[in-house]
């Protein structure tokens, strides 16, 4: 876990330095470095978090607890992170319009994901009244 953390920090610094150097010569390459660095960081971060989350799911499945809603929350947070990453990258490249479109797509995906949850909230609330 700690090793992964140092790896991520190292990649961040290398990516930042590379971007600074490349920005003076070619902004296109600098943008590519930003995107690649972001993807690598995201990959390592997901890899770090995946192990304890899988362990949690295993334990909860053993105790017979339904984890589907927790998975939805996890997916929603994941979508939010990816959307934010893409939107920020697009803004860095000066594409504000694409950034806002990415955010709109992300929000729509999160909303679609949370529709069954909202239905369940509604059903439970009505169940209490009945």
């Amino acid at each position: 876990m700690i090793t992964e953390f140092w790896k991520i920090m190292g990649i961040c610094i290398i990516g930042a330095v590379l971007t600074l150097v490349l920005k003076q010569k070619s902004s296109e390459y600098a943008f590519a470095v930003v995107v690649v660095t972001g993807v690598i960081i995201l990959f390592f971060a997901i890899k770090t978090v995946a192990e304890p989350i899988n362990l949690l799911f295993e334990k909860l499945s053993d105790s017979g607890v339904k984890t589907e809603y927790f998975k939805i929350a996890l997916k929603a947070v994941g979508i939010a992170y990816i959307t934010d990453f893409i939107a920020d990258a697009s803004r860095d490249a000066g594409q504000t319009s694409i950034a806002s479109k990415a955010e709109l797509a992300g929000k729509a995906a999160i909303f679609l994901l949370s529709v069954p949850v909202l239905m369940s909230v509604l059903e439970t609330a009505i169940g209490f009244i009945k």
Partner: peptide
């Protein structure tokens, strides 16, 4: 960001 607010709502 707007996506964080939507996610907060979903969570």
């Amino acid at each position: 960001s707007t996506s964080s607010k939507t996610t907060e709502f979903a969570v």
